[in-house]
Design a protein around this nucleic acid. Sequence first.
DNA 1: CAGTGTCAAGGTGGA
DNA 2: TCCACCTTGACACTG
Length: 301
Amino acid sequence: MKIGYPCINRSVGCSSGRTFRLSSYSDERLEETVRENLRCLQEILRFNLRESILFFRIASGLVPFASHPVCTAAWQDTFAGAFREVGRFVREHGMRISMHPDQFVVINAKDPGIVDKSVAELRYHAAVLDTMRLDGSAKIQIHVGGVYGDREASMKRFASVYSLLDESILRRLVVENDDSRYTLADCLRIHEETGVPVLFDVFHHRVNPSGVGVAEAIERSGATWRPEDGILMIDYSTPMPGGRRGRHAESLDGADFEQFLADTAPTDMDIMLEIKDKEKSALVAVGIARRDGRFLLPAER
DNA sequence: CAGTGTCAAGGTGGA
DNA sequence: TCCACCTTGACACTG
């Protein structure tokens, strides 16, 4: 079991997803930004190692505008060394990496232009992980996409676009249940059709359920991961108390997390905590999972 | 320098 | 048909 947090670390004092306005794009500006982002990413990973946080989601903004036509810079060549260095560090310390393109990636869109842009964005994400020379256990998670008033047809469209994707994307892509459109049951059906592994999101499942409990949900989604995918990843969070539907909590609800671990024992999985205070909650979660017994420090692995 | 409007990209639901 | 919302940080402009 590894525990992690997404994209941002509030302790190290830098961001690995710095960006700029499209209107101020230049290859120089891009190189300068990517250099800073990679430097910060390495700093975050060193922080994580010190704290036994071995799972991390890399920000999609690592290379700003990478899939936009304006970006013609050969960033994969320019920064090949730094990317490889990150990958080496990750492998050496047994870390796990994921990425999560945002809501603009909709591979089941009806508009072919949106599908093309989405595939380009997936290709960029795969290129980041490939350039780091990470294996197929480094995942790219997306949602199914839109419903467009016809869930069946939209799921079929997902499957048909999926079947045409490059191998470099297919070996990393996983699909996640969302909070309003596609449930875990929908994702499992898409898995049957396509073979895509299912990444289970506990919070979305509570908001947008499909009839099974958390333990069974994890068992079923876990069965969709192939050996080369690594052990299953899940997203875990709790709602913000008194907050609007869909908001993530400010900090970890320790009692809920402890109960969650008890409910899902003894399944091994890597847990991404989608919680606002990021590494702070990850530290608390590592402590709780240590007591649970499934979590091992690097030296114990 | 503090304050704030705006930012590549989509889908949904209400007005 | 249009707009706010989803959720979020931070760029970049204003005064």
